[in-house]
Design a protein around this nucleic acid. Structure first.
Lengths: 235, 235
DNA sequence: CAGTGGTCTAGACCACTTG
DNA sequence: AAGTGGTCTAGACCACTGC
């Protein structure tokens, strides 16, 4: 077998996890136990565990152990007729809390410079907690005059419903979905290791008059979220 | 500074990369050089490099070195009016080749058991090469009677145009987008390390009579692809 | 051949969690 | 205090690349 030892070990453990021998949430044997079981050095065992973690099969917690990860994901629905993210969560029976981390006027970010006519925009950073655990970061950029809609009483609300309450109707959204990797800041907020896969939903919302009214990014843990959508031919 | 040494080193290198001091495609200093520059052991230097790789900032190649990664992504468009993936690529001026890896009759996969009435379905596995480099794996499951549409002359064509040529019109697609991690098989085909982030487009296509005619998965390198879409209110 | 990254070992010490 | 994972070292050997 020309396979490196650490890979051979992680593959054996992988088969046991996929085969259900180690259940989701269950603790794997400790490093010391694996050293004995496979007769390899601790470094090699740790490399094997790192392989499992990078494949999303396990997660380690200092002082506690390494545990098989749960694989269930929460689905954001983007289908037409357009539904807003937050309304969806309730339908799935999932507790959903948005906590405002920061807010204020900032310079227009590069990615949305063509959308705003003012040099500064109102900006909000929110942490979305799903079933009590941090799941996503949400960044919103709005024309400065909309800032007053988001005073303290609405810090826990999402963006689109608040706009609708003030008579601003969203007609169309242009969006991009992509994978990124947790940078040091994101890894702290989302409680994931550096480089953990994230799924980013980047969108621009337009009114009926085709005027851009909001730019936003939802940065979610890639291991906990996915997006569903429906595409129709004619539209 | 209470930050681990390997993190402190990778953060310094990260700032240099983001600041443009090391350009995309450029080679980073060798491990030996970094050992000298930071006065750390080779293990710690390798850990720092691993941090950069996990953040998608660098990629290593045995015998050659570690290189700063290019960050440009190819966009799949899912917007309405519905366009097929392959037609999009041409519009972006990107060379796009699909190579058939395997094909034949297989048992209906679990994820699509409710879609097919036959116990077996026609299955194709294709490798999509973008600008000469492997970029995505495409798995397609079709009713067995459609298998004959995909004889040797069309191995390099995509699925939907072939169906249209045979008078089968796709009206609606239900899809899910999610992140996954490269398993050993995917890592070989896509030439990425184990655990590399992937973006998966999982879809079911329906005809005008609302009959499911195709189930498929497009598994793309998360560092090279993203999806764009448009959502309209009324639809 | 020299230079690069990849694998592996043995051992020390630290930080966190649990009883 | 005992057990867990996290950090770090020094050193050996291997595999691949390019001149």
């Amino acid at each position: 077998m020309s396979m490196p030892l650490h890979l051979s070990i992680s593959e054996q453990l992988r088969r046991q996890i996929i085969g259900g021998e180690y259940q989701p949430g269950e603790q794997l044997p400790s490093e010391a136990q694996l050293v004995e079981r496979f007769g390899a050095s601790r470094t090699t065992i740790r490399q094997a565990i790192a392989n499992l973690i990078s494949q999303g099969l396990a997660a380690s917690h200092q002082g506690k152990g390494v545990f098989v990860t749960e694989q269930r994901k929460v689905t954001y629905s983007l289908s037409s007729p357009m539904v807003f993210l937050e309304a969806d969560m309730a339908q799935q029976g999932i507790s959903f809390v948005a906590k405002r981390l920061e807010a204020g006027l900032v310079d227009v970010p590069e990615a949305s410079q063509h959308l705003f006519s003012t040099p500064q925009v109102f900006w909000q950073k929110k942490l979305l907690e799903i079933n009590g655990a941090p799941g996503a970061l949400d960044l919103t950029y709005l024309p400065p005059e909309f800032g007053e809609f988001f005073s303290d009483h609405s810090t826990h609300q999402m963006t689109f419903p608040v706009l609708e309450q003030h008579g601003i109707s969203i007609e169309r959204i242009e969006a991009v979905l992509e994978c990124t990797y947790a940078d040091p800041e994101e890894s702290v907020y989302l409680e994931v290791p550096l480089g953990h896969p994230l799924i980013v939903y980047r969108h621009t919302a337009f009114t009926t008059e085709n005027r851009p009214v909001a730019y936003g990014e939802t940065i979610s843990r890639g291991d906990r979220f996915c997006y569903s959508l429906e595409i129709r031919r004619g539209a």
